[in-house]
């Protein structure tokens, strides 16, 4: 609730400041204009259609009115100029976020999920995830934005304004979370059938917790320990899942759907559509179209124990 006006980082805080200043000025103008209008309506005598209309005033006869209107216009212009200065100044503040020791993340938007890749100067330390962006508190993040199909928009209201992801154009957005927490980010540009359910979560963690998480993400998928999970992995690799999804550490290496190597570590499924619980995961796999009609993942009619095995396997991929 009240995401825009509850900033958790400097970018959103600058914007919220500008919001309050602008709102105050606009509210003042609104009240003033309506007050003058109301006063004018109240004090003017009543008339009717038969009344002889006022004659055209002689030039110079309405000097006081001219003065009032001119004054009001000048005041409006001054207020607008002030708001313009405030707006440009805020823009500059947003551009001047220090990027020392920035975390580099690449986000590529698809219909209707977010591909997130954490960059690193050493290539073996790069890793990918989906629909979730975990960042360390207090450290700037430079997000490079790209689109795989149509225009989407990256928006985390509690951290910053929007940036569109436009195919053929690479944009960047710089932000920083100064408070730990989970920040919701809906897709903010109409992108087709499931634009309504294309959200990602930004989770800001204290730096040590972030490093622990990143290390875990860099590891390949854990090997299954019990029979059910083993059967689940067998189903995954021999069925249709591996045609689209990747699980590093297995032979599944496709990139057309979210990377599932550490799916159990995520808070939500289906780009924010469902919570990441075993029941929801089972329901999702059985029929994603029920939750997101039009999504690119087909339904799978699996026997109950097969579905349980698959869920058991995916559930251990932390």
């Amino acid at each position: 609730m009240n995401a825009v006006l509850d900033p958790a980082g400097p970018q959103a805080a600058h914007i919220a400041e500008l919001w309050w200043v602008t709102l105050a000025v606009c509210a003042l103008v609104f009240v003033a204009v309506l007050a003058v209008l109301a006063w004018g309506l109240w004090r003017a005598p009543r008339g009717d259609p038969q009344m002889v209309p006022g004659a055209r005033p002689a030039p110079g006869a309405e000097k006081h009115l001219i003065r009032w209107v001119t004054a009001a216009t000048v005041i409006s212009t001054i207020l607008l100029s002030g708001l313009l200065v405030a707006s440009v100044a805020t823009d500059r503040e947003l551009a001047q976020l220090s990027l020392t020791n920035a975390l580099n993340v690449r986000v590529k938007a698809h219909q209707w999920w977010w591909e997130v890749t954490y960059d690193d100067p050493q290539p073996e330390r790069m890793f990918a995830t989906a629909n979730e962006l975990r960042i360390p508190v207090g450290r700037p993040v430079l997000v490079t934005l790209d689109s795989g199909d149509v225009i989407h928009s990256f928006w985390v209201p509690r951290l910053h304004g929007k940036k569109d992801l436009i195919p053929g154009r690479t944009a960047t957005i710089q932000l920083r979370a100064d408070k730990a927490g989970e920040y919701h980010g809906p897709c903010a540009e109409y992108c087709g059938l499931q634009h309504a359910f294309m959200a990602f979560e930004v989770i800001a963690l204290p730096p040590e917790q972030f490093e622990t998480w990143a290390e875990a993400q860099r590891k390949p998928a854990a090997d299954p320990e019990d029979a059910a999970a083993r059967r689940g992995r067998e189903l995954f690799l021999s069925g249709s899942c591996m045609l689209c999804h990747a699980i590093h550490g297995t032979t599944a290496n496709a990139r057309t759907a979210p990377d599932l190597t550490h799916i159990a570590s995520r808070t939500r499924l289906g780009a924010g559509r469902l919570a990441n619980t075993p029941q929801d995961l089972a329901a999702w796999i059985a029929d994603p179209q029920k939750f997101k009609p039009g999504v690119n993942m087909p339904a799978h009619l699996l026997p109950d124990d097969d579905l349980k095995a698959l869920v058991a396997y995916l559930g251990m991929l932390k």
Partner: peptide, 19 residues
């Protein structure tokens, strides 16, 4: 018109556009 002024400012627009 006044919400238009709000939307005319780039930083504010970045938060409230497309909403």
């Amino acid at each position: 018109g006044l919400t238009g002024i709000i939307l005319g400012s780039v930083p504010l627009d970045l938060q409230v556009t497309d909403t």
